[in-house]
């Protein structure tokens, strides 16, 4: 009994330590946002937030710019997620289930695209987007981010579909199902957790993306939060507390999306155990 209790206690402590490591940066942003200038550079770091400084959040939101940035980020991230998942599912399915010439090459090329840094793509993409009048638009950023994240989404989903027994599809084929029907009715429900995981990757990629956004967007009202926050960094001064306040608010929607998607990842992981 006592051995069991020690085991549980150790596990709880372990979870708390891991949670602390994960949550501490968020907490530190919050504490920094609520620090006075004197506290910010004091020898002894202030570990608790000073709620009398709460006005920094109101100041950051006062002119509505920060909310516009957050809205733009949300649109870009959701758009990228939907588009990359929408295209990644059939691409992953084709790579998993169909035999065609150049299949291996396609997979390798998809993998290689992940090795190209974004900075390398900025100039050619800029020229392309200029030609198609996609600069300074959220649609352009959704396309750019989707192009960048689609390969990894497709490869994740290919791996998930690989794991589904072909017999299930054969049974469907006997019942007269076409490939699209089999994909949507048989495979997609079974790879829900992988779709959720891929969605998290796509969302976070687009949410945090900076290089494309800062280059392709000119108008302040179209900038996402990643660029908006960087705007606070001035040549001779930076309002640290304001930056931290906006950065803290910037992290919250991403955390919320992760919690939403994580539910489906966990649901999928436990589904097998219930069915036996």
């Amino acid at each position: 009994m006592s051995r069991l209790r020690i085991g549980v206690t150790l596990r709880v402590v372990g979870v708390l330590v891991v949670m602390g490591i994960a949550v501490f940066p968020l907490y530190w942003m919050f504490v920094t946002a609520l620090s006075s200038n004197a506290d910010l550079f004091a020898a002894d770091a202030r570990l608790l937030p000073d709620f009398s400084e709460l006005g920094v959040f109101a100041d950051a939101l006062a002119d509505g710019e920060a909310l516009t940035w957050l809205r733009n980020s949300l649109v870009i991230a959701l758009g990228t997620t939907v588009l990359s998942i929408g295209l990644g599912i059939p691409l992953g399915y084709a790579l998993s289930r169909f035999s065609f010439r150049g299949k291996m090459l396609t997979a390798v090329v998809l993998l290689l695209t992940q090795m190209l840094p974004e900075a390398l793509m900025v100039v050619p993409l800029f020229a392309l987007f200029n030609r198609f009048d996609l600069l300074d638009s959220l649609t352009g950023l959704v396309l750019a981010n989707s192009a960048f994240v689609l390969p990894i989404v497709a490869l994740i989903l290919k791996g998930a579909i690989d794991g589904i027994p072909r017999e299930l599809e054969e049974a469907g084929r006997v019942d007269g199902a076409r490939p699209l029907t089999m994909l949507l009715r048989i495979n997609v429900p079974l790879i829900g957790p992988s779709i959720a995981a891929a969605a998290v990757i796509a969302f976070f990629h687009a949410w945090n993306e900076y290089v494309f956004a800062v280059t392709f967007i000119y108008a302040p009202e179209t900038q996402p939060a990643s660029v908006g926050i960087a705007n606070f960094i001035g040549e001779v001064g930076t309002p640290v507390q304001t930056v931290m306040a906006v950065a803290f608010m910037f992290t919250l929607p991403a955390v919320a999306f992760y919690l939403f998607a994580q539910k489906y990842v966990v649901a999928g992981m436990t589904a097998g155990a219930v069915k036996g």
Binding site: V75, L78, I85, D136, S137, L138, Y218, F260
Partner: peptide, 25 residues
């Protein structure tokens, strides 16, 4: 849930495309 999420996100994207800034630097 996935269909609902995709629909909602799709609507947001559609709205976004509509709300793209038509101003240019």
């Amino acid at each position: 849930a996935m269909v609902a999420a995709a629909t909602a996100a799709g609507l947001v994207v559609t709205a976004a495309c509509g709300s793209d800034s038509d101003s240019s630097s």
